[in-house]
Design a protein around this nucleic acid. Structure first.
Length: 577
DNA sequence: GCCGTTTTCGGCCCGACTGTTTTCAGTCG
């Protein structure tokens, strides 16, 4: 049993206990589940090394939960969990994805209508059975249906940033295997799309048999879908389908290109080949010697294929047929921002509000990552649920940061900031006189998501007109697979941002990625610079910056287009005050 | 059920929002 499975079970226990109306236990299980999800070491290793005692060392895990983890590791089962599940046998992971449906409602729906999963929930809602239950009405039934509709649309795609580390573990393991000469991930993962449908791995191997055998018997595998000599496919326990293909060395580049896609990009490449009288497929680029007799002229690497097609090499993130082929032909491709180009992070939530770590812990973690500065941007007072800062608390935090900067010698430099809440009418919930004292001011929408498009656009534009607001955080408010963006005219926001010298953000948190690639591209085309921030709520989240960079690369951003690729003194010159 | 440089017992984030009610329960972050 791996960490992921154990964390899921603990979190589900939390939900079951919430159904029972338990007051504090649910949070304990929830916290333990989350702590385990964030761990790098495997529980079974920890247990092997130090037994129960070592498990209890894990934060949020005490005697009782440690024993449960032990039972899971030893037997693969947990009696306690099973008895809870027996009492209310519902598909929690499915039902909790419906917005507005929580444990209490799930329990009621099960007891009154025997609803167990999305399918039976939708059926009951469509039949008008839910509105008749006490405490429910037409509106709640309608909202359930709406949410199910949204879930269906967002489909079964995985958020890249939440799954990539698991993918990397598998690839690393295969890479070390004897007989694997070359290996690469292809598909939408290689293009760093925000969500991915499956995992495609390509390898070169003289003896693929043992590699395939190894692949289908990995511990993450739940089901083997295919097991052949050149292709195997498995379904992983986390629900992801993974394909492994073996190709010949001379075809590796062609296969990589073919399976990386996008389909549209590949079609455009193939058209160029055809115009030259050639053909391009997953085995290579070929020209015809005589009828039905083709000679390979490229294919071992992607580079030589692009070169033969008279194109500059196109980075995977740009392969969407959004005009990149034209640019490659004319040697006008932008030099994309690199994955190590950020000098700082401008959005971090600390334990002053809803973050998990202290300012100092973030500073040390950022330094380790090579960042020169970080902005502390805790929430403000109208976001009461996070313990948002009022003016007084912000001033206290500023004084605290001054002291900490002295202590750490400015490495990294800690900037005083805030994620100021934009109120319904576009005004801010912190007084301008206090904003004036901050190094960097960001503003964001956290409520009233349902305003009409024009009103929402006006609201955010008004915030940008504030003389102290430098950045708008997560400008469209979407959460991938959970919530669509609010209605807002992004192009208008881009214009206003330029006019008011405000920047828009690419929030790098894996299920936000907001602005998304298309919008980032539009902003950059309009000459607006962007910020890439982690939106970290714990020091582990700082690593999410790379997904923001990926999104920027997908939007064709160069280093110059991103404000926080600059050292702090240069960035300072770009800010309003 | 976890945790402790306020505590080994007594706290545990808590207010906005929604949809249902007519004073509130449940969800969300």
């Amino acid at each position: 049993m791996d960490n992921w499975e154990i964390a899921k079970i603990l979190k589900e226990i939390g939900e079951y206990l919430e159904m029972e109306g338990e007051a504090f236990k649910p949070r304990a299980y929830q916290a333990a589940g989350e702590a385990i999800e964030e761990m790098d070491d495997s529980l079974s290793e920890i247990y092997k090394r130090g037994g129960l005692k070592a498990l209890e060392e894990i934060p949020s895990v005490g005697v009782s939960i440690a024993e449960k983890i032990e039972e899971l590791l030893k037997t693969g089962h947990l009696k306690y969990y099973e008895s809870l599940k027996k009492k209310t046998p519902v598909d929690l992971s499915q039902l909790t994805t419906v917005e507005g449906v929580g444990p209490k409602i799930i329990k009621k729906l099960y007891e009154k209508l025997r609803i167990k999963n999305l399918e039976t929930l939708e059926k009951a809602a469509r039949a008008g059975k839910i509105r008749k239950l006490e405490g429910f009405g037409e509106k709640s039934e309608e909202n359930i249906l709406k949410s199910i509709e949204f879930l269906k649309q967002s489909g079964k795609r995985f958020v890249l940033g939440f799954i990539l580390s698991q993918v990397e573990v598998i690839v690393e393991r295969l890479k070390r295997l004897k007989g694997v000469e070359k290996i690469s991930v292809a598909g939408s993962i290689r293009r760093m799309k925000e969500t991915i449908g499956d995992l495609d791995i390509l390898i070169v191997s003289e003896k693929p048999g043992p590699v395939m055998d190894f692949f289908v018997s990995m511990p993450e595998v739940k089901q083997v879908l295919a097991h052949g000599q050149t292709k195997s496919a498995v379904r992983l326990k986390n629900g992801l389908d993974a394909d492994l293909r073996v190709v010949e060395k001379k075809s590796f580049g062609a296969a990589l290109c073919y399976f990386t896609g996008s389909k549209e990009h590949n079609i455009a490449l193939r058209e160029i080949a055809i115009k030259n009288g050639w053909k391009l497929n997953e085995y290579g680029l070929f020209k015809s010697k005589s009828k039905n007799d083709w000679i390979q002229i490229a294919g071992e690497t992607e580079e030589e294929i692009y070169k033969k097609l008279s194109l500059d090499y196109i980075e995977p993130e740009m392969r969407e047929n959004w005009g990149e082929i034209e640019l490659a032909k004319n040697h006008k491709l932008p030099k994309l921002i690199g994955y190590h180009d950020l000098k700082g992070d401008l959005q971090i939530q600390t334990d002053w509000t809803d973050g998990a770590n202290s300012i100092e812990e973030y500073a040390l973690a950022a330094k380790k990552m090579g960042l020169e500065y970080i902005a502390i941007t805790d929430h403000t007072k109208t976001l009461a649920m996070t313990g948002g800062c009022d003016e007084k608390k912000l001033l206290r935090q500023m004084a605290f940061i001054d002291k900490l900067n002295k202590k750490l010698g400015g490495k990294p430099k800690i900037l005083k900031g805030a994620e100021v809440n934009i109120l319904k009418n576009g005004s801010l919930d912190i007084d301008d006189r206090v904003l004036a004292k901050l190094d960097v001011v960001a503003a964001a929408v956290h409520s009233h998501f349902n305003l009409p498009r024009s009103e929402m656009t006006r609201r955010i534009s008004r915030a940008m007109a504030n003389p102290f607001v430098d950045i708008i955080f997560h400008p469209t408010g979407r959460i991938i697979n959970e919530r669509p963006p609010y209605e807002v005219d992004v192009e208008e926001l881009i214009k206003t941002a330029k006019k008011t010298k405000t920047y828009l953000e690419i929030d790098a948190y894996p299920n936000r990625l907001d602005l998304k690639d298309e919008h980032a591209k539009k902003a950059i085309e309009a000459g607006l610079k962007l910020a890439i921030d982690s939106d970290a709520h714990s020091i582990n989240h700082l690593q999410y910056l790379k997904f923001g960079i990926a999104q920027a690369r997908r939007g064709w951003a160069t280093k110059n287009d991103i404000i926080n690729t600059r050292p702090w003194p240069d960035l300072l010159k770009l800010l309003k005050h």
